[in-house]
């Protein structure tokens, strides 16, 4: 069953385009990573799915309903980000009680257990927490509400390395115990890729790819070695990324489908280093802004 269906959705902020004719759908009980560079439209998309804002054009369906101004969608979904606003008069315990009353799947033992594990006290106030503690508390609300559709927008901002690791483990364990549809946006694909089933990559408000993580990991290969040999082996192949190392060495990236296994083995025998490209780097190459590499900025001067 499809939980989220977007057809040709666009979103304009005044004259600025945030999303442009985005089309995709997300199946029930999958964990999808929403990946994109800064300003690609990740947050806008998540806000549209949660019904916080309306699309300028196109159609969006969540649980087969339009999410904007929709109580059914609100009761069955949650968007966790660093700007979650809770009434200043409520302490953390009160906020948890309110969430328990609103979300029918709320799991109090999990909320209490996580709160205790991360040393957050119930009598404290949300606006007095540090950045990392705020993210941690928001994440606890997001997990314990066990919403059929759980959206995390950069949930680990401000968390230290230990908390981030614990969060990812907690997310997976509670997903195994209580499967649900989860969308997780992050700049750090390498940190979350083990949790994901699918990757949705967006660039300039458009959907660049929507594939199982396994396919993204297998998508590209990197070739490194002497320029002359690389030129000879890779002639007539489309290069996705290129970086020179010194004057006569080069690092090039190409799609795996461009080269056969025999060609690659031959290249290795000629002294080129062939390596797989991890999913995170593959996404960086795909979302390249077309302004060359960072070295070009320095080479101009």
């Amino acid at each position: 069953m499809k939980i989220i269906e977007c057809r040709d959705i666009s979103k304009m902020y005044f004259r600025q385009k945030a999303l442009e004719q985005l089309t995709f759908s997300i199946e029930e009980n999958k964990i999808t990573g929403l990946i994109g560079r800064n300003g690609a439209g990740k947050t806008t998309l998540l806000k549209l799915i949660s019904g916080f804002i309306k699309p300028t054009a196109g159609e969006i369906k969540v649980f087969s309903e339009q999410p904007f101004n929709n109580l059914f969608v609100s009761a069955n979904s949650i968007l966790v980000d660093d700007s979650m606003s809770f009434p200043a008069a409520l302490n953390l315990g009160d906020i948890m009680d309110a969430a328990a009353a609103f979300y029918s799947n709320w799991h109090q033992p999990l909320a209490e257990g996580l709160l205790d594990y991360f040393s957050l006290e119930k009598y404290k106030y949300h606006n007095r927490l540090s950045k990392g503690q705020t993210s941690t508390f928001n994440m606890i609300i997001g997990l314990a509400s066990r919403c059929p559709l759980t959206l995390f927008d950069e949930p680990t901002i401000g968390m230290d390395a230990a908390v981030r690791k614990d969060f990812y483990r907690a997310l997976l364990k509670d997903y195994l115990a209580f499967p649900r549809t989860i969308v997780l946006s992050s700049h750090h694909l390498e940190e979350i890729e083990h949790l994901l089933e699918d990757v949705l990559l967006i660039k300039n408000g458009q959907c660049l790819l929507h594939l199982p993580i396994y396919d993204v990991k297998e998508m590209m290969i990197s070739v490194e070695g002497k320029l002359a040999i690389a030129d000879q082996v890779l002639q007539e192949k489309e290069i996705i990324y290129e970086q020179s190392i010194g004057t006569n060495h080069v690092h090039r990236v190409l799609l795996r489908e461009e080269a056969s296994v025999e060609e690659l083995q031959g290249a290795e025998r000629m002294g080129l280093k062939i390596r797989p490209v991890n999913a995170s780097d593959a996404c960086v190459y795909l979302t390249d802004k077309g302004k060359g590499v960072i070295d070009d900025v320095f080479n101009k001067n």
């Binding site: 964990i31 990812y168 997976l172 364990k173 195994l176 083990h194 949790l195 089933e197 199982p212 993580i213």
Partner: peptide, 18 residues
Amino acid sequence: QYQLADMYTINPATAAKG
């Protein structure tokens, strides 16, 4: 696949693929 997912903190779909 679910036990493997828990043991190695991986998505159960990945474990199933393996």
